[in-house]
């Protein structure tokens, strides 16, 4: 039998294998959506709000990094993608003024139930020292101290009449190693399900009032300007209260998303 005819015999097998491959649909990744709020009200850039300390603040810029997401499985183990120091995957630069930055997909995770997600708020120390980066970590985004090399993890800029600075400026830049904070956000009331037919979405609130408030609300009259790691350190723990899970959607995969 000529070789050509023999290979023809394999054709049905190839077709079946190809069909099987196609029949395995990809698992939808968990989507994260972030709404920026001040307590119960939405945060609007450029519109005055009242801080927990009773001061007025108009936010010009609110930007921060979320990084190194990992999911907690129902059995207590972690699902984390492998780290590649040459890739910006798993680093998200959130800008409250840019809607396209306030939703993203978490790295692919196997089917199953997950009870929470952990993020680093900021850029971890290893990546902070790994040279010129791309994507969300491109220093051209301006989240980088060029005079004290390292990423700015969190940036809040605006104006407050309470600020004694020129033009009543408020400038909080939290950066440098030691100021990154890790947050664990439990999925409540029910775990998030990853399966072929479901598109899960975790809707987070980033609450500026929670960041500025707490036991000793931040007063811009006293602290309008933070631009060094040393000065930012006492504020870094506030990063832990910025984010919370507001609600979770499970919708049919491929269906148009309703926020």
């Amino acid at each position: 039998m000529p070789a050509f005819s023999r290979s023809l015999l394999l054709l049905p097998l190839i077709v079946v294998l190809a069909a099987c491959r196609q029949a395995t649909p990809s698992l939808p990744a968990i989507q994260v959506e972030i709404s920026h709020v001040v307590g119960a009200a939405p945060l609007v850039i450029g519109v005055a709000l009242t801080t927990p300390a009773g001061e007025t603040l108009s936010v010009k810029r609110l930007q921060y990094y979320l990084s190194n997401p990992r999911l907690l499985r129902a059995d207590g183990s972690w699902q984390a993608p492998p780290q590649d120091l040459q890739s910006p995957d798993g680093y998200y630069l959130i800008d409250a003024a840019k809607p396209e930055t306030t939703h993203f997909l978490l790295p692919a995770a196997p089917a199953g139930e997950y009870s929470g997600v952990e993020f680093t708020i900021g850029v971890d120390e290893v990546r902070n020292g790994s040279g010129a980066q791309t994507g969300a970590l491109d220093p051209a985004h301006g989240m980088f101290w060029t005079w004290a090399t390292g990423y700015i993890h969190f940036k809040l800029e605006g104006r407050s009449p309470a600020s004694p600075e020129a033009d009543h400026a408020v400038t909080l830049h939290l950066g440098g190693n030691g100021l990154q904070r890790t947050v664990f956000l439990p999925f409540a009331p029910k775990p998030v399900r990853v399966s072929t037919d479901i598109q899960p979405t975790v809707h987070l609130h980033a609450d500026l009032a929670a960041f500025l408030g707490g036991a000793a609300p931040l007063k811009f009259a006293e602290q309008p300007l933070v631009m060094q790691a040393k000065d930012g350190l006492p504020l870094a723990d506030r990063l832990g209260s910025l984010l919370s899970v507001d609600h979770i959607h499970h919708e049919p995969a491929g269906a148009p998303h309703r926020p």
């Binding site: 902070n128 790994s130 040279g131 010129a132 220093p139 060029t146 005079w147 090399t149 390292g150």
Partner: peptide, 9 residues
Amino acid sequence: HHLELQPLG
């Protein structure tokens, strides 16, 4: 703290 990042200063 990295040769590649030094020029940014």
